[in-house]
Design a protein around this nucleic acid. Structure first.
Length: 181
DNA sequence: AATACCAGCAACCGCGTAAGT
DNA sequence: TACTTACGCGGTTGCTGGTAT
């Protein structure tokens, strides 16, 4: 059975938004608002898009005062410390960073910040455990196809209930990152 | 110059839940 | 109270451009 689709998939365009679609959506919402119904909105303005897709486009790109890229050191620190305290609640984290969207922060975390934090953590571990092995076979196995580290070596402490070390590892890594040198 | 690989990011999917009936 | 519908969120996918071989 499964879940009923939110729209007619056959008559809905997918993939990247064209400038024309952006203009249509933006000018309509600026004039009339969303009308409290995202699903009806694309039909109203003649867009062959799913309501969800319109909502996402508006929230992440078309909305005024959206910032993209160029995360500051301060923003990095806020994201890291919030991630440690609440986990991957991206919308809550985004609410603390004006102009940033949850999607942007999520991408930034997954592609860069996680590695940055991990690199820092590794450096610190090597420093404290001088002479110990550096990268293990397991580290390599734990790397997914995109090269990001997965598995016990880097769980979110709030999604992993099995590894007691996760929480302390995160805290340790974060502290070493947030505290000024 | 061609190909393979990788990183970054935009967008989609599906679930949980709030709101409406 | 039970059911339906739409929204919001987080995880994941897949495209694109850059870099390495």
């Amino acid at each position: 059975m499964g879940r009923a689709p939110c729209c007619d998939k056959a008559n809905v365009k997918k993939g990247p938004w064209s400038p024309e679609e952006d203009t249509k959506l933006k000018s309509y919402i600026e004039q009339h608002g969303t009308g409290g119904n995202w699903i009806a909105l694309p039909q109203k303005i003649g867009l062959k898009r799913c309501g969800k897709s319109c909502r996402l486009r508006w929230l992440n790109y078309l909305r005024p005062n959206i910032k993209h890229g160029g995360f500051s050191e301060e923003e990095d620190n806020i994201i890291c410390s919030l991630y440690i305290s609440i986990g991957s609640r991206w919308s809550i984290i985004a609410a603390q960073l004006p102009g940033r969207t949850d999607n942007d922060i999520k991408n930034y975390w997954n592609t860069r910040l996680k590695k940055k934090l991990l690199g820092k953590q590794r450096k610190d571990q090597q420093h404290t455990r001088r002479g110990s092995k550096q990268i293990t076979k397991r580290d390599i196995i734990n790397q997914d196809s995109r090269g990001s580290l997965i598995g016990p070596s880097f769980h979110s402490p709030y999604t992993c209930h099995h590894h007691h070390l996760c929480r302390s590892q995160f805290k340790e890594a974060s502290l070493s990152m947030t505290t000024p040198r």
